[in-house]
Design a protein around this nucleic acid. Sequence first.
DNA 1: CTGAAAGCGCTAACAT
DNA 2: ATGTTAGCGCTTTCAG
Lengths: 329, 329
Amino acid sequence: MREEEPVTIITVAKRAGVSKTTASDALRGSGRVSAETRATVMRVAEDLGYVPNGSARHLRRASTGTIGLHVPEVLTRSSYYMSFVFGVVERAAVNDYDVTLITSGERRARTPRVDGLVLGDPLVGDPVVERLMSARLPTVTCERFPGGRGADGVVLSPHADMVGRLLDHLRDSGARRPALIVAGDESDWAAELHQGYRRWCRANGVPTATRTVPFDAPADQVRAAARELLDARPAPDALVCGPAGAATEVLPVVRAAGREAGRDLLLASCVDTPGMALADPPITSIDLRPREAGAACAELLFDLLNGTAQPGTERVHPIELRPRASTTG
Amino acid sequence: MREEEPVTIITVAKRAGVSKTTASDALRGSGRVSAETRATVMRVAEDLGYVPNGSARHLRRASTGTIGLHVPEVLTRSSYYMSFVFGVVERAAVNDYDVTLITSGERRARTPRVDGLVLGDPLVGDPVVERLMSARLPTVTCERFPGGRGADGVVLSPHADMVGRLLDHLRDSGARRPALIVAGDESDWAAELHQGYRRWCRANGVPTATRTVPFDAPADQVRAAARELLDARPAPDALVCGPAGAATEVLPVVRAAGREAGRDLLLASCVDTPGMALADPPITSIDLRPREAGAACAELLFDLLNGTAQPGTERVHPIELRPRASTTG
DNA sequence: CTGAAAGCGCTAACAT
DNA sequence: ATGTTAGCGCTTTCAG
């Protein structure tokens, strides 16, 4: 079997009968070459199966070819962040970029060697986030950063509105007193959930009943909060759980209280996880489409890096309601 | 704020009073420089916060700086593969490597431009796997490839033995007739589970009772298999579920059959997923430590690539039993 | 034991 | 509209 000669831009240029600069310009569509030449070069490149060498490109451009990614310290526990990171990595790979995970355990005070940053759900008060936000690097956050100065780009979802739609759905299914378990306002997402709930309650003349738990609350705290809400009188007839996975953790508490999810207690989750569809009964959830969210963040960052998007850009990432037996009976 | 002059190997060399060749050799520990010089260079590099430029390195070495990763098409559904991929990516990042996910939908017949391949649970008969295995590229598989010619490196876990230990545990908890739901032998992992089960049953004079489902069986197929096993007479008093997530999917069937998991039916999963610990009752599982498995595969591939490991290397990846209420009452 | 020089593939600056 | 040249940071000959 013949040794495969690597196909470089020079191979393409020779074969197309042009210089390597022209080949380069044609391939990137710099607008410097004639349409005819461009077409020729493109065709030749395609025929040869030419793939640009990312290393050479980054070396020349003095870019690191790497973006930094930070998410709250719940990675392995939360399938949401797993998928989110996945979306970022996938999108980055397409653009020939590497992704460096920036953990909260980062001791070095130095800014990591990256071309830009993606911050998923930046929590105000997180020292790593604070440091990264003040680094002079193009930055995109998923949800707004509640801590003052915003990022160069933001990808956000209409969480408050979606909570309203979820509560409408619960009402249509017969609920009159929905309660909420939610994380504190250090994350924009939780703050939005909380706000959407209060707004809906006010508009519908319903008293509020909420318990606040930490952003990454362990199961026992979530269960304690659920117990308190269920024990209150008058008791709620629906329970909306904010934190990822909380709704499944709450199920045993519901049974212990002598209630049945989907019949005399409607149950919903603000984060769809694989466990929700598998729970007994399956739990109505808001699908945050984390993989697509991650991809959108990366996309926006690259647009920022190559000037396709202007600093200050905000893009909306759509989310979806997934009604299941826990609220439809 | 002063413009940060990028620290290159030349900066280090000048500061240490040596040539860039010597600096390079010292930093990589090529064994060409004196211990003294080496120490000096290392210290200077540390002081300056020098980080080698991956692009330049890869360009010079004519490596792509990318490894290809293929896993069965169950990525988002299975937290196992999510974690596995994560482990690979994490390890790759440390070695300045990118990871390209090779999907089964890959239309291009061309071998992807990568330095090596990691194949997670290669299924015999998967056309993409067959093609990749026959490409002339350093390859590591997680579990053996049942399809004949082996990979250059294999990371494997003692699944058969672990099933034996799990069955011992069930017996100690009072089970006399354990049944098994398992995937077909197109994956080495499932074959091992099956074999471990048969071996144990023979050794313990217990009749076997198994149902085979597809590797990525949807919930309804798993449930149907469980129903058949539970309806058999004499009925099993323990149920071991192979496929990821199957054990939680089976819970409703168990209840519908008038049995109670953890009391009159012991239930166990061969794949620990986040849902197992959260189920009601929590389900005894085998923790495959997927993230570490992914890291081990990447590590072995890099060892192969730089000659630290010889072709034909097999490394054992330890797994662990996590006993929970579903088998301990 | 160490240096000097070449060159990986690409693109930006400077030519025509 | 296209070609020529230089050089990104690194490692690998080839010479001392």
